[in-house]
Write a protein that binds this DNA or RNA. Sequence first.
DNA 1: CTGAAAGCGCTTACAG
DNA 2: CTGAAAGCGCTTACAG
Lengths: 354, 354
Amino acid sequence: MVTSEQVAQLAGVSRATVSRVLNGSPRISAEARERVHAAIATLGYEPDRVAQSLVRHRSHTIALALPNDQEREPGLNLSSIGKTSHYFYLDMLQYIEREVLSQGYDLLFPSRPHGTSPENYTRSLQMRRVAGTILLGQRFHPPDPRIQSLLQANIPTVFIDNLGQGNRATSVKADHVDSARQITEHLLSLGHRRIAILTGPIIDLPAMERLLGCQHALARAGITPEPGLIRPGGWNIDEAYATANVLLDERRDFTAIVAGSDLMAFGILHALHEHGLRVPEDISLTGFDDVELSQYSNPSLTTIRQDREAIGRGAVQRLIAMIEGKEEEPPPPLVVSTQLVVRKSTGPSSGKNL
Amino acid sequence: MVTSEQVAQLAGVSRATVSRVLNGSPRISAEARERVHAAIATLGYEPDRVAQSLVRHRSHTIALALPNDQEREPGLNLSSIGKTSHYFYLDMLQYIEREVLSQGYDLLFPSRPHGTSPENYTRSLQMRRVAGTILLGQRFHPPDPRIQSLLQANIPTVFIDNLGQGNRATSVKADHVDSARQITEHLLSLGHRRIAILTGPIIDLPAMERLLGCQHALARAGITPEPGLIRPGGWNIDEAYATANVLLDERRDFTAIVAGSDLMAFGILHALHEHGLRVPEDISLTGFDDVELSQYSNPSLTTIRQDREAIGRGAVQRLIAMIEGKEEEPPPPLVVSTQLVVRKSTGPSSGKNL
DNA sequence: CTGAAAGCGCTTACAG
DNA sequence: CTGAAAGCGCTTACAG
């Protein structure tokens, strides 16, 4: 392995000078700089990241934590994001990764040794010299003690799709409230008046905000939403399928369904097919997120496009600003606007019950 | 931060003894062991991973590299896995992560500084003291110079869905050949004789092996596959959609389509719908992989289930065996068997052209 | 502008 | 069985 010592020898300088050249110290003679760079090039030297982390007390590593079914597996990792409910976040992951790497940081999924006490969780991140943390997804509720511990330790943190506050914390998310307003007004403009709303778990921020947006839009149109048409459920496709079946067996006095996400919409679409209902002739259906698949369902899905790239990159940029910046205040939260995408799953209301 | 020095003081021993207790050295008195453990517990000590990595010349970190469209972005990262073509690998990622973490390792997506020369790529992994590497996906062809460099550096490596050889390398994949045999024989048993095959890029191992399996099964049934019915294309849903449109506009002398993956099947299904063809009444359609969505398409998809968990965990276990083991030989390649899942997208052949 | 020296927090021969 | 010392590869006051 090539070390800075060897570079120093070849360049005829000390290790300190090599280090200064590498770290862009201002007070270096042009000549020394050149010789060091030449030596680096001929030897193919790259600084040892581990040694750097040890002495700098900070690595160039950003940890990613993800929501998780705490009952079954109390970690913060990918385990639950692999489920259909989280395809959207997996899509976003690529933008996060790309931005992290392009800024010269590594992206880490940290393991959690020694049980899962909140202090242990934070300590394990500190022992990895993690520069900052991104918490992706909705399952981090304020009372989560691990998150509390993280915030108290002043590790720079960005929440995506959740509210996060702290001296070194901020958040990034889509404008879910407004997105729900858009999709509801689209249905209203098609003449729909009785609209069923199958939301995700209302404890999750995006589900709650979307429900709020729907209700705002309905209220503005002078419609009082009927409680029996609002059905909260899981984000998973199979849960949405089950909820839709229950609803359809119970009542049919509605002409449109607002699903809590695209994946939920796919499950609902399957239930509608099985009940012999045609979309959009008999009933209109909408999603949220605009996953790539939504333009290939049959019929293609009217939905809301979230700007994954703006959210993912914005989160990373804010995190690195906190890591490298000297400002006292964390950056303000970022709320990214959304866009209605009209496809073939919505049409004029027949005005009649199913 | 709590250091081993503080533990040593509280326990009334030296740092060396603390280290020996932690690393399970055999020659330690029971008394010292107890005192050290007590001190660790009261102080909440956890060893500094970075310092450990520096002195051990190896971290507890496993790097994950993914295929990538080399033309556009010559890295080995998530960027392309976020596309629909790779939902299957994203699903597998969770099992890889879970096994890595449960073994006490971290999972790393390493950044690639200083351009992308093969030597630089390997060097950057070495500078992170990476313990081993998992290469996930089909886009690593033997000539890839980065992979060559990696293998020469003797960094333990496991290839998933690709052939990898080396002193410290092995591979894990599903039995694609046999899976294609199963799905083809299923169609043959339904009376289909003229079967179109829309494969992924044949340069990718799974696509090639699946095509091979189809041809074997057809040959055994005495059917000579017609070249014009074999259409290689991209893994992406939109590419499969386009390929299907071209095929359907050109000819219709077939009664079934074998798609190269579930996602490709979704694109093809959309094209069939648009052409007014019913599945499975007019035409049968099959996929590969059994992504969760495939039971919710309309109709639900007959496909091949790959055991993501066996593949993901098997890869990690083999990698760690190479990292920690003293054997000279790398573990033999693992080929995981697959299972036919019959749903509603396949039915008896009408025997007639479309 | 530059070098010698101390130090980051561990582990591991070496002695005893 | 255990401690003192050296060393992993870097960075950074400190002096000059």
